[in-house]
């Protein structure tokens, strides 16, 4: 470990190249960080230290497998939106977080008069029945009976390529996503 701390950090260009290289996926071989080090021109230990640092400072919020949830039988997803008095949003958002019944929960702006909901949750389930059951439980657990809400089930997913955003980089493989033209029916 002493080597880890004495080795200089990757420079900006190497870090940028590393960000790009790993966003398309970790190499699937026994020394993935060494493979990455060879791509970006650094050492294995520098790559390890750098990724650890990104996890610690929150640049990487999760590091691991990202699944295609439809393929795992999560065929229904609903965006559940709530019209919550502004002064209660924080309290209710916290309750929903604690419930463990949603996969995402964000506050977003209203767009009056077309859209009057300000809290957005995603509920994923095997089918619509399960999603609705989970929603009922959420309403009960978080005492949301009085709150106006709407459920937006999805019909079709047209495109999913995850949160990739780095453009092609001259020292790293392209991670730019290719649009999937074909719609996938799942609902």
């Amino acid at each position: 470990m002493s080597e880890a701390h004495s080795a200089p950090k990757l420079n900006d260009i190497q870090q940028q190249a590393l960000k790009c290289a790993i966003q398309s996926g970790l190499p699937v071989d026994s020394r993935p960080y060494l493979t990455l080090a060879n791509i970006i021109g650094g050492s294995e230990q520098q790559v390890i230290t750098c990724i650890e640092e990104w996890i610690n400072n929150g640049l990487i919020k999760r590091f691991g497998l990202v699944v295609k949830h439809h393929k795992l039988g999560y065929n229904a997803n609903a965006m559940v939106v709530w019209n919550i008095p502004s002064h209660l949003v924080d309290e209710i958002g916290e309750r929903i977080k604690q419930s463990g019944l949603v996969t995402l929960c964000y506050r977003r702006p209203r767009r009056l008069p077309d859209w009057n909901y300000n809290l957005f949750c995603m509920i994923h389930g095997k089918d619509r029945g399960q999603v609705l059951q989970q929603l009922n439980q959420l309403i009960k657990t978080c005492q949301l009976t009085e709150i106006e809400h709407d459920i937006l089930f999805s019909y079709k997913q047209f495109k999913q390529c995850g949160g990739r955003f780095h453009r092609q980089h001259h020292t790293a493989p392209s991670a730019h996503c290719v649009p999937e033209r074909k719609a996938i029916n799942h609902g």
Partner: peptide
């Protein structure tokens, strides 16, 4: 893992960035 990637059960294997911290931006639009 290689097979799960090949069968496209996994979309990715690696980091999920906090995009704002990476200097980028995300939004939901309708």
């Amino acid at each position: 893992i290689a097979s799960l990637l090949e069968e496209k059960i996994l979309t990715r294997f690696g980091p999920m960035y906090q995009i704002e911290k990476a200097g980028g931006a995300f939004t939901l639009a309708a």
